[in-house]
Design a protein around this nucleic acid. Structure first.
Lengths: 217, 217
DNA sequence: TAGATTGTTAATCGATTAACAATC
DNA sequence: TAGATTGTTAATCGATTAACAATC
């Protein structure tokens, strides 16, 4: 079928594409061509098959009538679309529990997010080992980010410090920020931000638990 | 003005309520009544004032013409609506980097999420200290969850194990699950799930960086 | 071939924004 | 009072779902 590769993919779709990729990756690398239908994907992820087909129409990949989508091909195109096969240079600011855990998490490296700098303003934390790295003082961050060509900054500092850290990262040339702090961060349009706040997710969950009975009947 | 307290708040609104709460909390506890307008909130969080007023119409709290919203009152009602002033009993399954970081993170306890059990299936990890707790073997989890009246399970295990762990948690009586694993989790309607996957957020960010130029002009 | 599944269009549904009377 | 800001209604916008011709 004909296909127009749309230039901009809506955020709601991009978020699901990351789930399709995770799903396609669960098939592993075994030999033998495997196929998956929009119905199967939908079932596994709690969506409708219509949504899946509509979403996949945004990427440069075609399914085949009666067979579905070739898993390996789908996975390759999703990896490309999402930048999952690129190597990204990442710095973490904030060496608290969360920052340290992220810096030590091998999963990110496996997926191309190479953490090559960890910073904190607390002198007591400076010098501590984080895998092969050592925590550096925040004052060294701007030179490091521009010198090392850091693409992504992960902000894992207290809310009150978040915007200041973000401003420094932006001034030093990062292209994207993952914000784990509780505070909303404002950036120029050229610098992308994704917010990922565990506390907010927990609050969303606690609200839903509290009112679940009313919703469900 | 008259107000109908709606029984179900849409997810999109709940997510923003958590941000309004974080914002209201930045005002601290100082004396002196402080007021904030929908315009100010909108500006701080990158929304329109219309969205803010519409969202706040879902909660049981009124602003006052020409003054705006009383910060303390707003905060109290949001805390109530979101269950942020409740105490939740939480268990973490998976004592890898991420699970351990979460279990040690004081911020959660401060916000009423009391982590009182940490589990892993790896014998080498069992017995390790996590603050005042010790990692227990997963086989002890069902009895612990039902015995201790755990409300929320946090799933921080590899994707392949996630659904199995979730099923155990559900069978043992949790009311909600925070899923940090890469795999989608299916639950009965009475058990709420919120997905919070850092890898997916990073992929969303990497896609946006990759295609930012095209979007912005 | 017949049946299953795609890609796409159109219909529905929900969320955001604009506008404005009410009012402090 | 006059002006600012609310709560709410209506309009717009976008996202999801249903339906179906195309086709492998």
């Amino acid at each position: 079928m004909k296909r127009t590769k749309s230039s901009v993919i809506p955020s709601s779709v991009v978020r699901r594409l990351t789930e399709y990729l995770a799903y396609a990756q669960t098939f592993g690398n075994e030999n033998g061509d495997q196929w998956v239908s929009s119905r199967e994907i939908a079932q596994a992820l709690g969506l409708t098959s219509s949504t899946v087909r509509q979403d996949l129409s945004h990427i440069d990949f075609c399914g085949i009538s009666k067979r579905g989508y070739h898993v390996k091909g789908l996975r390759a195109v999703l990896e490309d679309t999402l930048g999952a096969n690129s190597v990204w240079r990442v710095a973490v600011v904030g060496a608290g529990n969360l920052g340290m855990a992220i810096a030590q998490n091998d999963e990110f490296r496996e997926r191309g997010f190479h953490i090559i700098g960890v910073f904190d303003k607390d002198a007591a934390k400076v010098g501590r080992s984080v895998g092969p790295l050592k925590v550096q003082h925040v004052s060294a961050m701007p030179d490091f980010v521009s010198g090392e060509g850091i693409d992504i900054g992960i902000v894992a500092v207290p809310a009150a410090a978040a915007q200041g850290v973000a401003d420094l990262l932006i001034a030093s040339g990062v292209r994207g920020i993952l914000n784990l702090s509780l505070s909303h961060i404002i950036t120029p349009r050229r610098v992308q931000v994704v917010e990922a706040r565990l506390t907010c997710s927990l609050l969303e969950l606690s609200h839903r638990i509290k009112y679940a009975r009313k919703e469900n009947k």
